[in-house]
Design a protein around this nucleic acid. Structure first.
Lengths: 345, 345
DNA sequence: CTGAAAGCGCTTACAG
DNA sequence: CTGAAAGCGCTTACAG
């Protein structure tokens, strides 16, 4: 293993002072162009790279962003919800473009986010990525704010939570998909998914659902809401419960699910129970995860633009770090119509 | 925003020297227990955390691992192959358990991996995750080795590539799945996927495929191999080409795909062409990505244990960093039988 | 345009 | 068990 070169080695080889080397390598205009080029060439030859620890220590910033993922129960080994997995790629890309490194970590594993990342100078800012359920983390988020940490949260604006948020319009998404179902002739509905304020994103989807029904004078046709966290298993179980509680003759025309994962479980249970989707009951999801296009029937859902989301999350955080004014952003939701809602029902 | 506390502030508050604070916080046995507890309490009160940059600079190590992802063309926005996405979760988890941070980055975006990470002291070691196609990166990997960088590669052992590798037995996987198809009565085959040495993992699967055929005296029943990179689109196109080249009467009993993504495209094209899977032609994939369980028909495939893979990748790298002896590891592949290979054909 | 010097916040021999 | 001191490798006023 070669000894690592330092800026002093470069200085020695180039016959200049170490200060000049530092300036040359940071492309300071203060240094003579010819000298700078020579230094840069020598640095390259000696395979020299600026030591980030030293540089960060001196500059008091790290050029690194920390991504805190909230752990989810999943069916595979990743323990990351597929929706967030696709955001991860986009965030990684956006960081790279901005010249920032990305530190990835599961949220649940450590106690004090601010301390862990920004205080210890490992990151200049933090991105919080979870299924909107920040309620139990409220104290931590408050502390983040109180400590002046730079952070951005994925989710809707929420008066209770300080800090900037980037999110997708869950209310509109829920409204749009149900309006579509009503337009297609469906008249009675069930919502599967948590709808309390411990799951604000799901709740917003549910409220959108309720509004669409109300607008069409169908409020009395809601056959209820069944809790389910965002897994296939929870969707399956909730459907089982529903089938037990609702008599065959009064079954809903459509089941609106708070997420695709839930919808997948719902369709599984319906298939097991011999109920045809979409002929007997229509099912729709939310998120447009990759699997949604491949399920049988393929799943009508609402797409959240993960690419844009990742970019906005990063750019907003960088603005916050630079002390520029930042504001919440709510991306529009986009309806994706597939087979599970029937074609001409 | 509060001023950040330093070890001197703690020292002042505790009435001891800064050295003692440092020792107390690193749980050094050299410091009096009572003193240590007092210092730790004060540190907590003042919300003090050790500055990682300073600490790393002094210790010359970062307690961070860099993950270099090879960018893939994908159908969604993540630009990460779903198979790697699930490994990502497992790697993140394994790092967290080991007390290491994980720096994630796309490989293609920078030139000199070693310099970028280990030389600049941002990471103690590197995990390389790509679809086995390290051929074009050979020079870089050689340089990594030459420079004494600690790194682990995902993929099979390869005499041409130095360094440790953790991989799954692609040869066995290919052999097992084809043997299963033969046992089920299939007699003629097509392989879809690159099989050259620029794609060593696919190639190993292909060799396993060939061996299984040969063993059963079916070598002459291979109706060819069609190149395809690991995307649905490539699988679709290759199938189109195959259908054009092979007359209806001599179509294969089974199509063996180098990856699930390819198989998904193959099944799509077959469906478009009115060919029934599995009744007319059997299709199998490789990887067991989440979608495989949901396609119609669900996909028979080979599972690589991503959870174990992530853990091995991390533990092996940590051993390498600690200068412990490390060796390649080849995990067994596991056949996952679903509908796409027919039940009793 | 360049150099000498200070200092970022730690850890760890060294001396007691 | 504790403290004074050196030094990790940089960046950046300061002086010229």
């Amino acid at each position: 293993m070669k000894e690592k070169a330092t800026s002093f080695d470069i200085a020695h080889a180039a016959g200049v002072s170490q200060s000049t080397v530092s300036r040359a390598l940071s492309n300071s205009p203060l240094v003579n162009q010819e000298t700078r080029e020579r230094i840069q060439r020598i640095a390259k030859e000696l395979n020299y790279k600026v030591d980030k620890n030293a540089s960060n220590l001196r500059k008091q910033r790290s050029n690194t962003i920390a991504l805190l993922l909230f752990e989810d129960p999943t069916s595979d080994d990743s323990m990351i919800n597929p929706f967030f997995l696709s955001m991860l790629g986009s965030i990684t890309r956006a960081c790279a473009s901005a010249g920032y490194d990305l530190l990835v970590s599961f949220q649940n594993m450590n106690d004090d986010w601010h301390a862990e990342y920004e205080d210890s100078n490992k990151a200049d800012g933090i991105i919080l990525l979870g299924y909107g359920d920040y309620t139990e983390y409220k104290d931590k988020i408050d502390m983040l704010e109180e400590q002046g940490t730079h952070f951005v949260r994925w989710g809707a604006h929420d008066a209770e939570h300080p800090g900037v948020s980037i999110g997708c319009d869950n209310f509109q998404g829920g409204y749009d998909i149900v309006s579509h179902l009503i337009a297609k002739g469906n008249r009675s509905f069930v919502f599967i998914g948590e709808a309390g304020n411990q799951a604000p994103e799901f709740q917003a989807r549910y409220f959108g659902y309720l509004k669409a029904l109300k607008e069409q004078g169908l409020s009395q046709h809601t056959l209820g809401q069944y809790d389910a966290i965002s897994t296939e298993g929870a969707g399956y179980d909730a459907t089982e419960q529903m089938l037990n509680e609702i008599t065959l003759s009064s079954r809903p025309d459509a089941i609106v699910c708070a997420s695709d994962l839930i919808a997948l479980g719902v369709m599984q249970k319906l298939a097991d129970a011999g109920v045809n989707v979409p002929d007997d009951i229509v099912v729709v999801g939310y998120d447009n995860i990759p699997v949604a296009a491949y399920s049988t029937p393929s799943l009508t859902t609402v797409k959240q633009n993960t690419k844009l989301a990742g970019e906005l999350l990063v750019s907003t955080l960088l603005d916050a770090i630079a002390n520029k004014p930042v504001e919440d952003y709510l991306m529009p939701a986009e309806l994706v119509v597939r087979q599970s809602c029937g074609s001409n029902k």
